[in-house]
């Protein structure tokens, strides 16, 4: 299971770095919203992975809260951009 954690952690880390590059470079705010969605999905995934490695279910509630926070942030940003154009 240690090998599993190393492989999955490396994949998560590489994906987070690539999404962060798009978050910095992204020319429009929509690109940054997409990169933030990927980053928050990676955060939820890391929380679930650490819970799977330690065989404890206490962190699952945190994953629920972070996934709800991701929806609120991306929907709020999209509506804010829509309002800014009117």
């Amino acid at each position: 299971m240690t090998v599993t954690m190393i492989i999955a952690g490396a994949l998560f880390g590489a994906g987070a770095v690539l999404a962060a590059i798009r978050l910095i470079r992204g020319p429009s705010p929509i690109d940054r919203t997409a990169a933030l969605d990927v980053l928050l999905a990676i955060v939820v995934g890391v929380i679930l992975l650490s819970a799977a490695m330690s065989r404890s279910a206490t962190a699952v509630v945190i994953a629920v809260v972070v996934s709800l926070l991701g929806f609120v942030s991306s929907a709020g940003l999209a509506l804010l951009l829509q309002r800014g154009r009117r």
């Binding site: 994906g15 690539l18 999404a19």
Partner: peptide, 9 residues
Amino acid sequence: SFIAGVAVL
């Protein structure tokens, strides 16, 4: 997640 990072970039 890694594939999504590559695709977003």
